[in-house]
């Protein structure tokens, strides 16, 4: 089967008068259709840059990537941004409908899909209110609903739960898995949390400190549906956890030298 996302030798250099910084170096990844892939790496390793390139918000210096298109009328990708991605002057409903409106879909389809995903994330009662009255967790639900409602070929998530407290994080992780299992979208997910990566992903890609390279991968073959208890109880996962922990520790150490 051909890869859903294929990234070849992607390099990104940020250049400013007299000095350059290599954010990504020769990154090559293949992601299968329906795969949930997490990226873990030390801060500043270029994870976000990689996602922003795939999201068409940044251009690669060299290298290329392709995202396979299954349906003509689908957008290639939609991004779930870090905490502040919900637009404050649009209501919850308008935020969820944003991508659909931008693509000028028929009104009844916009309405139908918006209310479906609002209900899915439990925000149907809050459809008409503005984000200022939402908690952080609810805002991220809006962000997730907006991305899924847009029905893209792949989903990009940039630490969507990083700013949430532990309890909210657990709840949203499970909700995300629920919605995801229904649609089986291909997901690229950035996180700092090893637990989160083990719970969510089929595969974890470990990145080096700057310049960012993919240096290892862990396959997470725990059966789904999963919950945090299973992840914690599984000895293989405990082993993975330790490996990834050591990796991060080493990379942080390296970047200091």
């Amino acid at each position: 089967m051909a890869a859903k996302i294929s990234i070849r030798d992607l390099t990104k250099v940020f250049y400013k008068k007299g000095s350059s910084m290599t954010a990504l170096q020769n990154v090559s990844i293949d992601v299968q259709d329906g795969e949930f892939v997490c990226f873990i790496g030390p801060s500043g390793c270029g994870k976000t840059t990689l996602l922003r390139i795939l999201a068409d918000l940044e251009t690669p210096s060299t290298g290329e990537f392709t995202i396979a298109r299954d349906k003509e009328d689908r957008p290639l990708q939609s991004m779930v941004f870090q905490e502040k991605g919900v637009i404050p002057w649009l209501t919850v409903e308008e935020n969820v409908a944003f991508g659909l409106k931008m693509r000028h879909l028929p009104k009844n389809i916009i309405k139908e899909r918006t209310s479906y995903y609002l209900a899915k994330v439990g925000l149907d009662k809050f459809a008409k209110i503005y984000p200022k009255d939402l908690s952080g967790g609810m805002k991220q639900r809006v962000s997730i609903a907006r991305a899924f409602a847009n029905d893209p070929e792949i989903l990009l998530m940039d630490e969507p739960f990083a700013a949430l407290d532990e309890q909210n994080k657990f709840i949203l992780q499970e909700e995300l898995l629920n919605i995801w299992s229904e649609t089986k979208k291909t997901v690229l997910f950035i996180t700092h949390s090893i637990d989160e990566a083990l719970l969510l992903s089929d595969r974890i890609l470990l990145m080096s400190s700057q310049p960012g390279r993919i240096i290892d991968e862990k396959v997470v073959d725990l059966p789904r549906p999963r919950n945090m208890e299973q992840v914690r109880a599984d000895p293989t996962m405990a082993h993975h956890f330790k490996d990834i922990w050591n990796h991060l520790h080493n990379e942080v150490q390296n970047s200091r030298e």
Partner: peptide, 29 residues
């Protein structure tokens, strides 16, 4: 206007008319 809203609009495929009326106008209001 916070850059992230421009990113959101771009990522979700806003055309220049939508940038004008859905982002720039309300955001600067």
């Amino acid at each position: 206007i916070d850059r992230i809203y421009l990113d959101v609009a771009k990522n979700y495929g806003a055309d220049s008319k939508n940038f004008f009326f859905k982002i720039a106008l309300p955001g600067s209001l």
